[in-house]
Structure formats: C-alpha cells, structure tokens
C-alpha cells in the first residue's frame, strides 16, 4: 500500500479532505453537509494519512488523543444546550447571535456549536478505532 506516489500525495490529500470537512460542517445548516458528514470525511482523511505515513505521524499531527477529541465534542455539544436555561427557556432551545465583521453578517448559534460537537465526536470515535486497528496491523 505504501507506494511512493501514495505516500507523496496522501498528506496533501488528507489536508484537503480536512479542509473540505470543515467546509461541509459549516455549510451544513443551509446546504447538504453537517457535523456528522464532516466528521466522517475528516476521519477518512486521518485513516488515509495513517495508511500512507504510519499511525505515529497521524498521532503527532492531531496532537490530542482522538478519544479526547471525541470527549471534547460531547462536552461542547452538551454545553451548547445550557445558555437557554439562563434565559428561562427549555434545555437546548437554540440561541442566535448575528455578528458583523469585515462587512459581512456572520450568524452564530448554539446549534452551530452543537454541530461542531457532533463533528468532534465522530472524528474522534471513528479515527481512534481506525488508528488503533492500523497500529495493530503493523506489529
């Protein structure tokens, strides 16, 4: 599997896929996409990178343990439900803020934070499984 071509291309391909996954994540609210799909794309990016350049390289690249990413995702997803409680609305009622920066209106919302949480959970869980399996393959 580790041909020269694959090993040369894989980092660029992975980087592009991660970038694309973020794009898919952020457009999700209005166009096909979202946290789940984005997470799957990023997870496959890490899987490809791992197959091409070894698991150690992936672990270095993402710094944190993938399971920690997953936990972080679940944490912020849960957290995103809390602001509404302070406004005496039910848990997870969506809140929207419109921020004007650089001449554009950027809509921020608790569902967006929630979706980012979903993204991290999926990336973390899937890539920790894939990486662990790849790691075992090599020994």
């Amino acid at each position: 599997m580790r041909t020269v071509i694959f090993r040369t291309i894989a980092p660029y391909l992975s980087a592009l896929m991660v970038l694309f996954s973020v794009f898919v994540l952020l457009r999700g609210h209005n166009a096909p996409g979202g946290g789940f799909i984005g997470g799957l794309i990023a997870a496959s990016a890490f899987a490809i990178f791992g197959i091409a350049c070894g698991v150690a390289a992936v672990r270095r690249a993402i710094i944190f343990h993938p399971m920690a990413l997953s936990a972080f995702g679940l944490f912020i997803a849960g957290l995103s439900g809390l602001p509404s409680l302070f406004l005496r609305q039910p848990f997870m009622t969506s809140q929207w803020w419109y921020i004007h920066a650089f001449g554009v209106e950027i809509p921020l919302s608790t569902p967006l934070i929630f979706d980012i949480g979903v993204y991290f959970v999926v990336v973390g869980a899937i890539s920790s499984i894939a990486l662990a399996l790849e790691e075992r393959e090599s020994d």
């Binding site: 999700g28 996409g33 979202g34 946290g35 969506s94 569902p111 967006l112 929630f114």
Partner: peptide, 15 residues
C-alpha cells in the same frame, strides 16, 4: 434559520 431540513432536525428540532 436553516434551509437544510435534515441538518435542522438533527441539531435543533431533535437535538
């Protein structure tokens, strides 16, 4: 505030 119904259901209506 979302046009992608699937996503809106996932992250908002059935969050």
């Amino acid at each position: 505030h979302g046009r992608n119904i699937v996503n809106v259901i996932l992250v908002d209506f059935r969050g």
